[in-house]
Design a protein around this nucleic acid. Structure first.
Lengths: 105, 105
DNA sequence: CTTTATCGTAAGTCATAACTTACGGTAAGT
DNA sequence: ACTTACCGTAAGTTATGACTTACGATAAAG
């Protein structure tokens, strides 16, 4: 569906580091920004892109905002990957079949 | 392994169109460029990036150069995807477990 | 009610990368 | 040998996006 946004979101290395920090569980923005070599607003901008791609979700928790991994984004990526793989395999089989017939004649 | 290059390569829309043209089988550079709204040299540059990411391979065929899908690239992407998914699921279970124990006390 | 903590947005800067045209190089056809 | 077809690379241009600092907004704490 929207796998294109997922690919764009995961292409940037530091944004991927932000995303991978949520792999071990939900975290607040400040927690995520800590240890990363960029400013906190930069982290917020990355989270915005990740959210638009369906890779993360967020919920308010007091004055802070907790982000978590949304399965939808990676699901869309996986669906595209499987589809592409099946198509390529099918085309490869057809190619091999045609080659086989060509040698018999 | 080198899934980062794969993500960067697939992030660009027109480069993804170049890649998806090889889904139905191997093709020459000229064939790929035909129909695309960009120049042929641009296609060559995209193919260079795709090849460096392990997404495509190429073989000389007379004066032309035929490109095909290399399984290695998408394989690396899939491996990263599975790993991430497993880790996230594990973290989610641990979180739920901790929450359960917290409610019992 | 004032202060503090936490976060998102706006505006501006700067590097990157996706194009273009121009050129050179190799293999096949005449 | 010369021409033609096909392709990769070089150099230059331009738009995009990843950062920064500055500011405003909301919720808890005192």
């Amino acid at each position: 569906m929207t796998y294109d946004k997922v690919l764009v979101a995961l292409a940037d290395p530091t944004r991927r580091r932000v995303f991978e920090r949520l792999r071990r569980g939900p975290q607040s923005v400040g927690k995520i920004a800590g240890g990363l070599p960029i400013s906190r607003p930069a982290v917020s901008q990355h989270l915005k892109v990740l959210k638009a791609a369906g890779l993360v979700g967020d919920r308010p928790e007091g004055t802070r905002r907790v982000y978590y991994v949304d399965p939808e984004g990676l699901g869309a990526l996986r669906a595209w990957l499987d589809q592409f793989w099946d198509d390529a395999l099918l085309a490869f089989k057809a190619e091999a079949e045609a080659e086989h017939l060509r040698r018999k004649s």
